[in-house]
Design a binder for these strands. Structure first.
Lengths: 179, 179
DNA sequence: TTGATTACTTACTTACTAGTAAGTATATTT
DNA sequence: AAATATACTTACTAGTAAGTAAGTAATCAA
């Protein structure tokens, strides 16, 4: 599963095969089918494992200040970046239409989990005064998650550290007021 | 090429085949190879056509106010969204590592063309006072392009209009000052 | 000690992929 | 009228994909 996740997040769901995994583990492709009969079983397992990890993360961060929680969330993108991986949403999202229905539903569910968490963090920061912005938290959270998602993609394409730029704009944007 | 572009932007480069095109045109796959011997010839043609169209667009918009130019740029994303397509960068970027070298180089070149144009627009808006923000224009432009790119992806995954949220945050963010 | 379970391999099928070589009908040029 | 170029088709190859059925060796439980 670690290998499969790496392959999905570096090459894409439709661009890796069971042979990529089996040969890396010195096995035959049938050995992978033994654990994951169909490819979507493996794909679903990766999505749901990621959802679980996210749930565990936000649970661990729960008592931290909103800004600290957001920093830790962005830190997971920085770690992905160091490993030259994009996030699973950035990898699976563009090929959404090619995915089996089960994976589509799980991916959609994951997107709501992440988006609603960021919304909550932003609202908490507004409430305790640590964040200041005039946009609707619903809109702001989507602006943040989209810029993070695509920064990993553009890091690869441009060879520059887009994530660093995006990160600084995000935090500046949380300490502003309209003129 | 129109069909190929649509396929790339809806399913991804590695998830469409010459047969998808040939059968839609009532031809045999060899007929497509007649015009584009290898798949990367077709891929490159799509990228370079898009680069050319972008160059033509920004040339047409040249005399407009910065804000108007940005609006027109974002309008191209809204049109893509209506057609249920993501942008070519959002489609090809995640599978960057699987692309032939020629396509990688062209995609990277395209990314610089788009990013430097947005940077110029932001600087022009700062200069004439129509935009107001404290972030570095280099950072701000990357925050804008990433949020637009990923908004099309997340529109599909969530079924919500993420682009609308992102658009409003972008324009609010260009009329702000730090506290 | 037998029987069942686990973790595979062997060997295969079906389907699809990009790509090619050789042929053909039609239109265009000389 | 003959030669050539255009736009294909036919028929194929080689490679890869997901997936499966049947067999096997080793471990574990009764």
């Amino acid at each position: 599963m670690d290998l499969a996740e790496q392959l999905i997040r570096s090459r894409g769901y439709n661009s890796f095969s069971y042979k990529d995994i089996s040969s890396a583990l010195n096995l035959k492709n049938a050995a992978i089918h033994y654990y994951f009969p169909a490819k979507h079983d493996l794909g679903s397992a990766i999505i749901n494992r990621t959802r679980l990890r996210f749930a565990q993360h936000i649970s661990q961060w729960k008592t931290d200040a909103p800004k600290r929680q957001l920093e830790q969330f962005i830190n997971t993108y920085e770690k992905a970046n160091q490993k030259e991986l994009i996030c699973f949403m950035g990898s699976l999202g563009p090929s959404y239409k090619t995915l089996p229905e089960s994976m589509q539903k799980e991916l959609t569910a994951a997107s709501f989990e992440i988006r609603s968490w960021i919304r909550i963090i932003l609202k908490a920061g507004l409430a305790d005064g640590s964040f200041s912005f005039n946009e609707k938290p619903e809109d702001k959270s989507d602006a943040i998650i989209t810029s993070l998602l695509a920064s990993l993609i553009l890091n690869r394409v441009t060879g520059e550290n887009i994530l660093a730029s995006v990160k600084s704009v995000i935090f500046t944007g949380l300490q502003k007021e309209a003129l």
